[in-house]
Design a binder for these strands. Structure first.
Lengths: 209, 209
DNA sequence: AAAACTATACACCATATTGGGGTAAATTCT
DNA sequence: AGAATTTACCCCAATATGGTGTATAGTTTT
């Protein structure tokens, strides 16, 4: 069923890593590294010619940062699969890359076989990630277990964060508008804030909602 | 380094599946299925005695739904790892389970070896998921590529969704308050809405922000 | 049983915010 | 050059917000 060759482009400023990956991938029959670049800009310029199915890219690059590169590449060819390959595992970068459009995120510490696995995984419609990154991603869905807010207060704050007014919240929760105000007063006190925006910001940061 | 036996609890109403899993896992030296239940309620009751390291659970169960079960279990023992094993792959359930506290989500169509892989993955601090689910999870971070909103409008709407007022938004973007109003008017027109709450709701649903 | 917390509800008040109407110049992209 | 985007301004009325303060019924914890 797989008779088509998978066209791969590499964007990586470390020449050793870049050439090592290319050599490895080219040694496999169904993969073909059509080009490899040191800068996003060059990869972008040649996107139309290279016609890659998959791009492997680093984030720290000379010139344009990889995050922006991902955004631009996905804008050009939305269906293209991008796998980030970097040394950094800090959550900010990971989420930025995923938001920008990356479909996978593995670390350079990964050995060759897991690189190949990642590419197979992408081809199978998956989203390859290292264990730690997968866990980070999954945990990003979970709320802070020891929130200072009660269940009701959390509900109120959740609706507030959806832009709803006190009156609308009171209607949706079947309580009096003044009750909503009371809850909000308590929320502000507990979070030590004095406005909607501060409360939402703090709640999002601490994953209370 | 792994000399401790991993204690596993299974919650699954299909007796064949439940006993099959238990048999398989017990056949491996370092795993021990301490108990298996048909209902969440029973698993919860015996949590303290069972002292599981990992719980495998189905979502469709007689009595309490698995999603609520996960919440309660995590409330009791926050560090416990729960792997959901179900036939359903629809996004709503997946995200609900992850939000409730599941650390992994695989489908029953998975073969035995991938079940074992999942357990190893969890023990290694990862988050086992099937390819399709991993992709769904990763895609949940990504915005709708063809948003009707301009870049600036998206920025404004993003700040609005954080509860910020027109004045605060204008300060943060270094533009006049009236300009913010103009953007918001255009946003409302494009999204065909007439209030902040509607705009945010629609934007979240269509992943414009 | 007492104490603490939670959810509920109400009043008053000044200020800020919002949404609707309109217009229009400067800038950037195609 | 024309289109789209971003910027900025005016008027106005209704609504929302945040800060006071009080109070009661129910639940949970000690």
């Amino acid at each position: 069923m797989e008779n088509k060759i998978t066209r791969i482009v590499i964007v990586e400023d470390n020449e050793v890593v870049k050439d090592g990956f290319a050599l490895l991938l080219n040694s496999i029959e169904e993969y073909h590294v059509v080009n490899s670049y040191v800068k996003c800009e060059d990869a972008l310029k040649n996107l139309k010619n290279d016609q890659p199915d998959i791009i492997l890219m680093d984030l720290e690059l000379p010139g344009m940062h990889g995050i922006e590169g991902i955004q631009r590449i996905k804008k050009e060819i939305p269906d293209l699969n991008i796998i980030v390959i970097t040394v950094h595992e800090d959550s900010e970068l990971v989420f930025q890359a995923l938001c920008a459009g990356a479909s996978g995120y593995i670390t350079k510490t990964a050995n060759y076989s897991s690189l190949l696995e990642a590419i197979n995984e992408i081809k199978a419609g998956g989203a390859p990630m290292s264990s730690r990154i997968a866990r980070m991603v999954v945990e990003s869905f979970q709320k802070n277990q020891d929130s200072p807010l009660t269940k009701r207060e959390t509900e109120v704050l959740e609706l507030l964060s959806k832009g709803k007014s006190y009156s609308i919240i009171s209607e949706e929760l079947f309580i009096h508008k003044e009750t909503v105000k009371s809850h909000i007063k308590n929320i502000y006190f507990k979070l030590q804030v004095h406005s909607k925006a501060e409360a939402i910001e703090k709640a999002l940061k601490e994953k209370l909602i």
